[in-house]
């Protein structure tokens, strides 16, 4: 029983990172129908930004988190402006390939600038382990879960309660109609990128603190897994992305705990295939028929 509970805690801390990343994928897809493959690399940028402000200027956790989120948001907006906006009217495949290009640019650009070695992340706070009835949970795990949950709730509030959120929803339903009623589509899309990228940046610093290690290629695998999480939850749906993230975390942990660690990645991609075959809209996705 103890082991099961311990594994659930492991799963939740892993899942919350996937969830944070999946939210960005899902939001961007919901609005411009683009799978932003550079998203995982924004998460890497966030981690590196936090690394530098902590080790050079000795920022504390909160300020480092905010800086990482702001820098990632800016990076997201800049990427959208230069790489995706000029292609808005081109076929979707062109934008998708551009996204992959941006991803390579960020990965190899950072490898070139800072070196491709893995580096240890500065300790912003001392790790303290709490032992509750044989189950070990660390303050950083609690922090990750709490930060992830707070950010998810905040995101939901922004989307549901603010004017910008309403504009985002309007653009995602029909950009042309939204423009007709006075929504600035370009601003809305920029804002979506900023929001999604800020979440990825937050994921970056949390991962840095939790695993104490960052490198320029750290965004590759989590990026793809978060994409699977977004598809699983229903791409375009915000609660779906959160749920998908946690589910992927649980799935991976479960397969590792029963001794099938060699298949943990395979299982995630298998889930992707099954979902695409039998439930292409995902768990929370709207199953809308395309009108011809």
């Amino acid at each position: 029983m103890q082991i099961v509970l311990q594994q659930i805690i492991n799963a939740l801390s892993l899942g919350s990172i996937y969830a944070l990343l999946a939210l960005g994928y899902s939001m961007v897809y919901g609005i411009i129908k683009l799978i932003n493959f550079a998203h995982g690399d924004i998460y890497m940028l966030g981690a590196f930004c936090a690394y530098y402000v902590i080790s050079l200027w000795h920022f504390n956790f909160i300020t480092a988190l905010l800086t990482a989120m702001i820098v990632s948001a800016l990076a997201g907006v800049v990427i959208e402006y230069f790489a995706y906006r000029p292609l808005r009217k081109s076929p979707r495949i062109a934008v998708l390939i551009t996204a992959i290009g941006v991803s390579f640019l960020l990965e190899n650009g950072m490898s070139y600038l800072v070196g491709s070695n893995a580096r240890s992340f500065p300790q912003v706070m001392e790790q303290v382990n709490y032992n509750i009835g044989g189950i070990v949970i660390s303050n950083i795990q609690i922090l990750i879960l709490a930060t992830a949950l707070i950010l998810m709730v905040l995101l939901q509030v922004i989307i549901k309660k603010t004017k910008m959120g309403r504009a985002m929803r309007a653009v995602s339903v029909d950009p042309d109609a939204a423009e007709l009623v006075g929504v600035n589509v370009n601003h809305t899309i920029s804002f979506t990128f900023a929001l999604g990228s800020a979440l990825a940046g937050a994921g970056g610093i949390l991962i840095g603190m939790y695993y104490n290690q960052i490198d320029p290629l750290m965004g590759m695998t989590p990026g793809i897994k978060a994409f699977v999480a977004a598809v699983l939850g229903g791409i375009g749906s915000v609660p779906g992305a959160s749920l998908g993230g946690f589910l992927i975390g649980i799935l991976e942990t479960f397969f590792q705990s029963i001794g099938l660690s060699a298949y943990k990645d395979a299982v995630v991609y298998f889930v992707l295939i099954v979902i695409l075959l039998f439930l292409p809209a995902g768990i929370f996705g709207k199953n809308t028929k395309e009108k011809v």
Partner: peptide, 21 residues
């Protein structure tokens, strides 16, 4: 126990928990 991971993995908690038990 005989388990494996891949390069680039960062989370080993699940497997290590099973080793511990």
């Amino acid at each position: 126990a005989n388990q494996t991971y891949s390069a680039g993995d960062k989370d080993f908690n699940a497997v290590l928990t099973s080793f511990k038990s």
